[in-house]
Write a protein that binds this DNA or RNA. Structure first.
Lengths: 218, 218
DNA sequence: GTCTATATCCAGATAGAC
DNA sequence: GTCTATCTGGATATAGAC
């Protein structure tokens, strides 16, 4: 049998190399900010080979996003499996989500670009990611640990919002604490503690709350 | 004296027309997604005149952002002046911010693109916008209405996060409620009610909280 | 102050050799 | 499967007439 020249005539390898580089660049500069030439030069693969494998720049972009979401979902699933259960599900959910977002900036940025670009139809793993927390919350409500006049999905969104927003605008936000002598890392932790405290207990003083209350506030 | 040909030889008018069109397009597609030719065609002003007035595409972009932030700050200042004061500052602050973000999508998108593009040095009015709410919160803490173990700026960031995130990802988020028979507008209102409830009172049942408590949670 | 014409470069995509 | 060479259009920016 013939031995392959072993140069790099490995289509799958080449495709993955292209995808890795494309993911990095698209995440940094968005779709319009990156040219196929950029990807070609950064990956050492010729332009035409990129077109050969993916058809067009747009199709490559879609594949980058698809793959990233898939990886995200797998990582999230693995991480959340380790969460111990009630009664601390909320605290752990917030912490897990918060650090997970920090550790997955690439896909967070991809998702943000995609949102601005009007891409709303994708995210096969997005719903599942949300549902995992939402189901745990619903269970905690049934057990009476959490007030049951709150939609679990709404609460999940708020947790996601608190984490996403911080890491998205972190460079700007830490500037608001200039002069306080705290490092950015310390502020990260303090923000997490604060949102946990507020989500769990609220901000009002003298708050007396009954389980499953249905009274309107004020 | 000579009468101007009145054609459109009004530099200031022309510049504003260019800025208006550029703001709309940059907000929709981001810096790299818009060409000077696009702006030229949409505004009816020749490409070279755009360069004449602003020097470069990048300088035009900067001016668009500068002007938008300035307008945002003036509008926010006008709107918040109407806020009645304690004890409902948090509730009103959240509602004001929430609807304000909805009504200013253009600048929200500009700010989001700018963030992704790594633009962190601008935003002359941003700090002031935050500080307004933070100062009211601090005052409410002094009056004993709000627990005083929370940094006012942190709370302001969380309020901002809850609003920004919703309007930023709204098209995706409403899909999570498909099948519930609620319209998008109803979900908008319900989300606002939910975050208000949570921020004010927290999510735990059986919560007994003392004013200015310094106990650690769990 | 505003235009037309154009220079120069780079984009995405394809042809065809190996 | 991968490359070099190239097509065609569009990008930013400038020159110079009016």
């Amino acid at each position: 049998m013939l031995v392959e020249k072993a140069k790099s005539r490995d289509a799958e390898n080449t495709k993955q190399a292209i995808l890795d580089v494309a993911e990095k660049l698209f995440s940094e500069k968005g779709f319009s900010g990156v040219s196929v030439r950029d990807i070609s030069e950064a990956s050492g693969v010729s332009q035409s080979l990129i077109h050969h494998h993916f058809g067009s720049k747009h199709a490559l972009y879609q594949e980058v996003k698809r793959r990233a979401i898939e990886r995200f979902w797998h990582k999230w699933h693995a991480r959340t499996s380790a969460i111990t259960h009630r009664p601390n599900i909320i605290r752990e959910g917030i912490e897990t989500f918060y650090w997970f977002v920090r550790d997955n900036q690439t896909i967070m940025r991809l998702s943000c670009w995609a949102c601005l670009e009007g891409d709303t139809d994708l995210w096969p793993g997005e719903k599942e990611t949300m549902d995992f927390l939402a189901q745990e919350i619903a269970e905690a409500q049934r057990e009476g640990i959490l007030r049951n006049d709150i939609d679990p999905i709404m609460l999940t969104i708020l947790i996601e919002a608190a984490s996403f927003f911080w890491w998205q605008y972190r460079a700007n936000l830490v500037k608001l604490f200039e002069g306080s002598g705290r490092s950015a890392g310390e502020i990260d932790c303090e923000y997490l503690q604060t949102i946990t405290k507020i989500l769990l207990c609220g901000v009002l003083t003298h708050q007396k709350q009954t389980s499953g209350s249905k009274e309107e506030l004020h």
